[in-house]
Design a protein around this nucleic acid. Sequence first.
DNA 1: AAGGAATATGAAACGCATTATAAATCAGGA
DNA 2: TCCTGATTTATAATGCGTTTCATATTCCTT
Lengths: 329, 329
Amino acid sequence: MATIKEVAAKSGLSPTTVSRVINNHPYVDDAKRKKVMQAMEDLGYVPNSSARRLRGQRTNTIAVIISRIVNPFFSHLVDAMELIAGEKGYQLILCDSRLDKDRELRHLELLKAKQVDGIILASLQNEWKAIEPFTKYGPVISCNEYDTNAQMPVIRCDQVYGGYIATKHLIEKGHTKIAYAGGADRIQLTRDRKTGVFKALKEHGLSIPEEWMFPSFYGIEDGKNIFQRIYAMENRPTAIFAGGDEVAAGIIQEAKRFNYRIPEDLAVIGYDNQPIADLINPGITTIEQPMKLMGTRAMEMMVDMIAYNRKVTYKKEILPLQLVVRQST
Amino acid sequence: MATIKEVAAKSGLSPTTVSRVINNHPYVDDAKRKKVMQAMEDLGYVPNSSARRLRGQRTNTIAVIISRIVNPFFSHLVDAMELIAGEKGYQLILCDSRLDKDRELRHLELLKAKQVDGIILASLQNEWKAIEPFTKYGPVISCNEYDTNAQMPVIRCDQVYGGYIATKHLIEKGHTKIAYAGGADRIQLTRDRKTGVFKALKEHGLSIPEEWMFPSFYGIEDGKNIFQRIYAMENRPTAIFAGGDEVAAGIIQEAKRFNYRIPEDLAVIGYDNQPIADLINPGITTIEQPMKLMGTRAMEMMVDMIAYNRKVTYKKEILPLQLVVRQST
DNA sequence: AAGGAATATGAAACGCATTATAAATCAGGA
DNA sequence: TCCTGATTTATAATGCGTTTCATATTCCTT
């Protein structure tokens, strides 16, 4: 309600001086500083954010685009980002692409309108070609998801390695009949995981028959379906690599319903190490992704890029992945 | 980069006309409208959001304050809000109070600085007295959480009823030795649930010894602790009301580790009907809260209040709760 | 004591789009 | 033909802090 002018009038000083007080500039007489503070207090004055943004060409706001906030993986990622953003004095705009290309692009427009200082992409439905034009309006970095030929900084994990150690673990447990249930192949992250899986298999002279490949499956229901399909087979796998703990959980739940023993009849390995992995019985052996760390680093990097006017040329940061062994394998 | 002036120059018209084109005002010659559109296209012009905010005194941004985004209850709530906000042309700022009073108040400051048009409070760590001063700066409504003597609109569920039907269910299953694990009593929602619990008990001449009251427990770990404490007792309850599915899940997991049979040795009822409730074994009997609906209605109400300049005097909206029976009772 | 740096303050310009006001043009009615 | 009202466009004011520039003091330094 009150403006800087009114504060100036009330304290008998100019708007300039009031502004100096607000922004902790030096060169303000102590007595006058106190007068201004008193006037601000009396009027309940708070600087208008829109005016500051317009003048300062900064919004102190960062957008994060994820694909599904109800996925615990993303909520943990966002949780870490929100914490750091707050510490650094930024607001966080939450944008959910809902796995939709156009929604994702619409959210990127925030940068053009200078409504945010930067965007963290933890959803990557579009190709680099579609995203690249936005990068000239401000910093854009990707987090978790990635695209090798994209020219943007990225914080992610080594998915090839993740697929590799998961499969290696199954092989070491004596399995040779391994099935694969991953996400869509159009996503590089998924492709890389698959590469890791096959790398491990190859090293041991193994492979996966077409019948045991289940692409594009995500949720618990999908997991249940997968088990149904396996159950109907004549030649069944003895182990399965699932590209997510939710899918793994679905497989396990359904398997139990059919009195299939886990891991004796079917070993299941998940991915992400989400809370459910430790909750269901048997616990899911899985690949832990450092979501907190990823969110933290991504936000820190973004804040740095904004501060240094994106002259910082971070390339990429690859965070560690590790196997968490529970009872499902 | 480009401003409205440059567009005006390029199209040989005034900023006013360009503005009219942008805002679809009538009274613009068709030929000129096209010229302007062409110029905007050529320059890749997008109106500066900060300038529009300053001039229009509107931000098209709404903040939602929740207490813990990693709690599936809140992520579903936020998911619904984000969807509606997007449909109505608003951005959503995510604020996590992390169960901290001061953090919550700091987030409320967004309204004073006119950084948002309104705030949805799905976290309520502060008393009405502390929140009330903010309401004169813009619409504030509460969602899920509430405070009966707060003078603000609210979208919530009938928690007394929830506690009542949950407990009634346990009693109908033949239990008389019922324990209670809720949240902090300083939260009205929790107090009301407790009131419902005791109402049902009283109707059957039952009560809960002090020893079986576990206040202020929230997560899975808390649930595990609670079981430990029960297990160490001489006189153990045969059923427990947990104020959240996570706590219920923790209790169940730990109980299983000690070969306690659920529900034979200990019946457990949760609250929220979160995904885990259906995932773990045995499935958790719980009280379903309509999170999607709550989020949707809260956002719709907020948008309406902003549109009608909060002359709308919505009072409160109470949404249905219902018992979902699974195997844990 | 004189010159220069450091300190202190205000007037005015600026960031960028919207809007109020004014003015010009044109159609239709008396 | 003159007047009224609808249509079209432009100039200037506005929203509200921050920053530049100019000016005035005070404090050192040699």
